[in-house]
Amino acid sequence: MSVAVLDVRDVRIHFGGVTALDGISLTVDPGEICGLIGPNGAGKTTLFNCITRIYRPDAGTIRFGGADLLAVPRHRIVRHGVARTFQNLALFPSLSVLENTVVGAHVRRGRHRALRAEALGILAALDLADVAHRPAQGLPFGTLKRVELARALAAHPRLLLLDEPAGGLTHAEVRDLGALIKRIRDRYELSALLVEHHMGLVMGICDHVVAMDSGRKIADGPPQDVQRDETVAAAYLGRAAA
C-alpha cells in the first residue's frame, strides 16, 4: 500500500480557553483531491495553519510523505513540497502576473531566466499567458485567484492546500475552477486538500470529503455519503440558525 501524502493524527490546539482543534485526524492519498468542509469556525483554516506551521499544535502528529512535518522548520515547509493559497489574496499588486508567479519559486534554486520560462509555462497552463506582463492590480478577481494558484504551483508542490478558492467567484468561474483543479492535479501529479463552502464544487471534484464541526471530525468518506450524513446536515443547519 502506498504511503499517504498527508497523515494528520489526533491534532489538538488551544487558544486560551478555546479548543480550536479537538483531536482531528485525516489522510490525503497520492493523486487525491480531498474536500474539507464545515460551518464557519469549524477549524478548517486552523488545520491548514497547523499543516503549514503557522501554528504549532499542542498535541498530535502531522506526517507528509512519511516524514514528520512538525520537525521541519517553518521556513522549509514549501521547499518540502507543501504550497497553499489563501482566503484573502496575498499578491503583490504592483508586480506583474509573471513576477508574482516567479515569487513562488523563491524556495528553489535556479537561474532567473529558467524560472521565468517555467513560470510562463505555468501561466499558459492556467490560461493566463495573455496577462503575464500586466500588473496584478486592476485585474478581475477571478483572474487574480488563478494567479495565486500559479504562484503556488511554481514551488513544485506535491500537496496543494486550497483555502476557499471559489470564494467571490461567479457560477461560471466556479465551474471553470473545478475543471482547472482537476487538470492541475493530473498535469502536475499532485494531491490537493480543499477547504470550500461551495458544495457543488466539492461534490464535483473531490475523491473524498472530511466534515468538521467545532474542531472535531464528524464525517469522512465519499462525497455523496458525507453530503447525506445527518450529523453534517445538523452542523450546518444548527450553525445557520444560531
Rank of each mutant, 00 (worst) to 15 (best):
Y236P: 08
R111E: 09
T19S: 15
G168D: 08
M203I: 12
A192Q: 14
G200N: 12
I122T: 14
E189G: 12
V3R: 14
R53Y: 13
I218Y: 05
F15R: 09
L6S: 12
G66Y: 08
D220A: 12
V210S: 02
G121T: 06
I13V: 07
S94E: 10
L177W: 07
R158N: 09
G178K: 09
L161Q: 15
S94T: 07
E189C: 10
I122V: 13
A234W: 01
T46F: 00
A132Y: 08
L193W: 10
L126N: 05
E230I: 03
C50G: 03
T19H: 09
L36Y: 04
I122D: 02
P73M: 10
V82M: 10
R183M: 07
R134N: 10
H133F: 14
T19K: 04
D213E: 14
P73W: 00
T19L: 12
A235T: 13
V3Y: 02
H198T: 13
M199I: 00
A124W: 00
D176W: 08
A83S: 13
L21N: 06
R56E: 15
R216A: 11
N88I: 06
I13H: 07
V147I: 15
E148K: 09
H14T: 06
I24G: 02
L128S: 09
E173A: 04
A125M: 09
G215L: 09
R74N: 09
L193A: 08
L149N: 10
A4W: 06
R134K: 05
V232E: 15
L123S: 12
A234Q: 11
R76S: 13
D22N: 10
L201P: 05
R53L: 05
R146W: 02
G60M: 13
S2W: 02
L21I: 02
I33C: 07
L159V: 01
A154E: 11
A192D: 13
L69N: 07
G200Y: 14
E164L: 05
T231E: 10
D29K: 06
R228M: 11
D130K: 06
G138F: 12
P135K: 01
R108C: 15
D58N: 07
I122E: 11
A211L: 08
N49R: 14
M203L: 12
D130S: 11
G31E: 15
R56S: 15
A136E: 09
R146E: 09
V209T: 00
E196P: 01
L159D: 05
R12V: 06
D186W: 05
T231V: 04
V78I: 14
K145V: 13
V202F: 03
Q137E: 04
V202M: 08
T170H: 01
E164Q: 03
